[in-house]
Design a binder for these strands. Sequence first.
DNA 1: TCATATTCAGAGTTCTTTATCCTAAATTAG
DNA 2: CTAATTTAGGATAAAGAACTCTGAATATGA
Lengths: 142, 142
Amino acid sequence: MSLIFSRQCEYALQAVTYLALKPEGEMTSIKELAKKLGIPYHFLGKILQDLSYKGLLASQKGPTGGFRLAMPAKDITLFHVVEAVDGVGFTKNCVLGFPECSGQNPCAVHEKWAGLRDGIYSMLVSKNIAQVAREMRKPEYV
Amino acid sequence: MSLIFSRQCEYALQAVTYLALKPEGEMTSIKELAKKLGIPYHFLGKILQDLSYKGLLASQKGPTGGFRLAMPAKDITLFHVVEAVDGVGFTKNCVLGFPECSGQNPCAVHEKWAGLRDGIYSMLVSKNIAQVAREMRKPEYV
DNA sequence: TCATATTCAGAGTTCTTTATCCTAAATTAG
DNA sequence: CTAATTTAGGATAAAGAACTCTGAATATGA
């Protein structure tokens, strides 16, 4: 099996979205995130740590500590998160894995994939986390 | 990093395409495939073995033995290969990994992704290996 | 102030995927 | 029938992804 994005990346997207539903600046603990989102506690900790390092989140230790978005949710796109966690490999490589495939020497689906790839890219760039969070909101989610 | 398809799947696609360039029925050894495609020999052996088990290839032991397509190249689509190796998970799951995401309760990119996903699917279904091989052919390739 | 509970930080472990190795079984050619 | 060649298939190793455990930092209340 192969997912489009890694599990880490999916968890990161879910966590960032959850944080976007909180009042701006409020700290949320790994514990709460892990419980509400159903993500393994320690694994999520590592992911959030990484997102802090990359500058998307801010963290604080100790009681009352936790994580928050490092900037307004409307300024973070889905692409920012994907880029930080998985990188942008999917925008570059031949979808079929042909090493020789390029614009000069395209594989049979080169052009078709270019269109779809751009579609995925603009899907990720055009949605910010505030929008995602707003549309995702439902009673059970928070 | 996360590729769309697994490396196994990419190797399988390349091998099947290579076989499609051979006269129908001719056997090709793992050795030749591995060398020409630059794929690890033993790993490729296992992949081809698996493709035989799945019915896409036929194999024969002994000198003059090797692998060949089990049916005409025009009857094998890219999707057949992907399905055999990676399965069809990408057609089902939420691209952002939200567990609650569904038609009833769509995530922010649910509809957009549905369109792109269908695009990928039809890209894979509409190209058969004969076409892929024909368009891929170039002096160095075989 | 200081003990303590709570939280993140980072090293460590497990599991899956990728890749390698080795022996057996089949088949062809001489 | 023997030797050479090729796939079959299990066992192992290395790399990377997923997950866990322990320790350092810090706020809070006695």
